[in-house]
Nucleic acid binder design. Structure first.
Lengths: 112, 112
DNA sequence: AACTATACATAGTTTAGAAAGGTATTCGAA
DNA sequence: TTCGAATACCTTTCTAAACTATGTATAGTT
């Protein structure tokens, strides 16, 4: 069948990183996080509900995020997520590791 | 415990790519592929046997690699792997997708 | 009235890679 | 000369992450 454009699978192991980075800029609720990442990536990443909510749950359990129940402008029940201090540290650590990883992959991939 | 330097886990989904690229340069046997990737990555990637051999088996089954039984200089029994035409096409496709993915992640991660 | 978007959630499946174990040979150093 | 390190292969078991599919419910649009 093949996927339509801008709907490729994520590179595994990068979802946490992108969520952390997105919440560093703004406090958002789950649905809005997926939307913002879609926008920021130029439509490349379409995060499925089945990836998003389990990831958020994991990250709260790990102490990287805090969830605050709230109401949207339209009085819908939402959960606003924000980084904890541990989440901020985790972001620094993960993004450093990611850059290092990419550099190493590029060394392997580079034209001989 | 924490891992020692140059022994981080791989970024999932990039092992096939690195194996394909490595075999594009030279025909190598399994053990030598892991060694070459370790060297090329500046010691960053230490590919475990339990990752390497199942990956090679998968890739042969998918028709991307061909394995030829041979003997090393020291008369050890080895299997030399090489890319098939499908493997070469797969390398082009995967490396394009990877670059696109990295660009999109960098859009998400970039300083606001 | 129907459809789309918003907003959350969970169950089940798949897959890759890691951990851990195993076999066997060769070579150099103690 | 024996012992360990490196070479070379393989398999079983486990875990984690992400996808698929499904479900609930409300708000706004057409």
């Amino acid at each position: 069948m093949g996927r339509r454009d801008g709907n490729a699978d994520l590179l595994p192991g990068t979802l946490h990183l992108m969520i952390l980075r997105t919440l560093q800029r703004e406090h958002l609720h789950g649905y809005a996080i997926a939307k913002r990442i879609r926008e920021l990536s130029g439509g490349e990443f379409e995060i499925e509900d089945g990836s998003l909510y389990p990831a958020l749950t994991r990250m709260v359990l790990k102490g990287w995020l805090k969830a605050k129940p709230a109401l949207s402008e339209n009085q819908r029940k939402i959960k606003i997520y924000e980084l904890t201090p541990a989440g901020r540290r985790r972001l620094e650590q993960e993004s450093g590791a990611f850059k290092k990883m990419i550099r190493a992959i590029q060394l392997v991939m580079k034209p001989s």
